[in-house]
Amino acid sequence: MSADKLDAYRSKRDAARTPEPVPEPGSLPTGHDDTFVIQEHHARRLHWDLRLERDGVLASWAIPKGIPMDPKTNHLAVHTEDHPIEYATFEGEIAKGEYGGGLMLIWDRGTYETEKWSDREVMVVMRGSRFSGKYVLFRTDGKSWMIHRMDPPPATGLPPASDLRPMVPVERKRLPRDPAAYGFEFDLGGERVLAATGGGRVRLYDADGTVLPAGDHPELEPLGKAAGGLATVLDGQIVEMDGAPVYMIFDVLRLNSGDLLGRSYQDRRRTLDHLALRGPHWQTTPWFPGDGAAVLKVAREQGFPAVLAKRLDSPYDPGARSPYWLRVPTG
């Protein structure tokens, strides 16, 4: 065993190159062994990191598909190096090329109670702001573990969306004067639709919050199995492309039981890009940070009705006509 539980952690990080906490060797802090954090990690592949405070460090597992909500489904959990206690509050951008390079965001944090802790099995009850539940992590081989939910699942595999209404842009004649503060998208027109996915199902809502009849868009039924089975609430427009309907997705409002409304537009778009939603009748729209003039030029050439300018730091304000989002017609 290492003389210092954080030796492996320090060996993979250069304190001068990463914003992550890299404490100097020494005595470990004394806590109550009751803090947990789940971090959404935009590394080479999107995954979630579960960390449990234990003996002065955070015992850590990387979970590619997120915390399972249904006890019928176990998820892979790869045991990683112990992290410092300070990591429980860390959010930031780890530089590209560094170990774990990418955006790190706190998905949930709270307290937990230990029911069992051994080298092969960890059983805890977690209570966070987004979810609560009793879970067991059990070792299968080497660093590979599985995580299993032990109590009943939430009432539905679909996240709630009936309480949401689309955020609407303000009309403007010109692009914003500070384009570096915005991300730009093509406005392709079409029908504004929110889509709740999860458990292999999809439910569509119009701009008034009304559930669309299941037969209205049968081509979107397979969308329920996209995003690696994660539960999502998506925002987009259904447009006609080459004579067929395509759901053009430009925002993600909820993910894996987490509410993303308070996150910035930039962070939501990066999460959406990691989900890699592309199918025969749906795709993620491109976005272009700071490049408004070029986007407007292409939109005019292609005959698109307008360009959308969305502030990079904008939250999602359901139902609001917000000056954070601007719609600039091409004509």
Rank of each mutant, 00 (worst) to 15 (best):
E98R: 02
W48N: 05
W145T: 01
R120G: 08
L230A: 15
E171A: 14
P179M: 09
K96E: 15
L137E: 03
R177G: 08
G229N: 13
R321I: 00
A231V: 00
E115P: 00
G228E: 06
W117Y: 08
G142N: 03
E81M: 08
E53R: 07
V298E: 14
Q283R: 15
F250G: 08
I94C: 06
P160E: 14
L260G: 09
D7R: 13
E20Y: 09
Y324L: 14
G100Y: 00
A244N: 11
G97K: 02
P21Q: 08
R17C: 03
L230V: 12
Y247R: 04
V211P: 10
L188A: 14
H79V: 00
A180G: 06
P213F: 10
G319W: 05
R254I: 03
G331A: 10
I238H: 12
G198D: 04
L6S: 03
M146I: 07
S322P: 00
L204C: 05
A294G: 04
D178Q: 11
G290V: 04
G157I: 02
E24R: 14
L260D: 04
E121N: 12
H148F: 02
S129W: 02
H281F: 11
K12I: 07
K310L: 09
L175E: 05
Y265Q: 06
D178N: 07
A43L: 01
S162Y: 01
A244P: 00
M146E: 15
H41K: 09
G215S: 11
R270L: 15
A155H: 07
L28V: 02
R269I: 11
L212N: 13
R10E: 00
D317L: 06
P176D: 03
S257M: 13
D49V: 00
G110K: 09
H42K: 06
D82V: 03
V233A: 02
A59K: 15
A77M: 01
G215E: 13
L234M: 14
G190F: 04
N256Q: 14
P318D: 01
P68K: 07
F184V: 10
A3N: 06
W107E: 05
R44D: 07
D163H: 15
A309F: 11
